[in-house]
């Protein structure tokens, strides 16, 4: 089973890297870009077939290491 974890800054937390990306896209002629937020994508291979258990364990991984709860939120996507 694979877990795909997106870690991203909470709304309201300043993201200077995302702002720089948006500005750069504007400079390249993508004037329709009004904002960008930069996050992280982590793909994890799991030795389990139990989706419910996997969800629980990956959430624990996020809480313990992958995300910083002070500034970040996360989403978990599981696939076979």
């Amino acid at each position: 089973m694979k877990a795909r974890v997106h870690v991203y800054l909470k709304p309201g937390v300043l993201d200077p890297q995302g702002q720089a990306v948006a500005t750069s896209l504007n400079h390249l002629g993508f004037e329709e870009v009004s904002a960008a937020r930069q996050g992280k994508f982590i793909e994890i291979d799991l030795e389990t077939a139990d989706a419910e258990e996997a969800q629980k364990r990956v959430a624990e991984m996020c809480d313990k290491l992958l995300a910083n709860p002070v500034i970040e939120n996360y989403d978990i996507e599981l696939s076979a």
Binding site: V13, L14, P16, Q17, A20, N68, V70, I71
Partner: peptide
């Protein structure tokens, strides 16, 4: 310690 240390505002 509380809080977080993020990327410098000016990058």
């Amino acid at each position: 310690l509380p809080g977080a240390l993020m990327r410098n505002e000016g990058l």
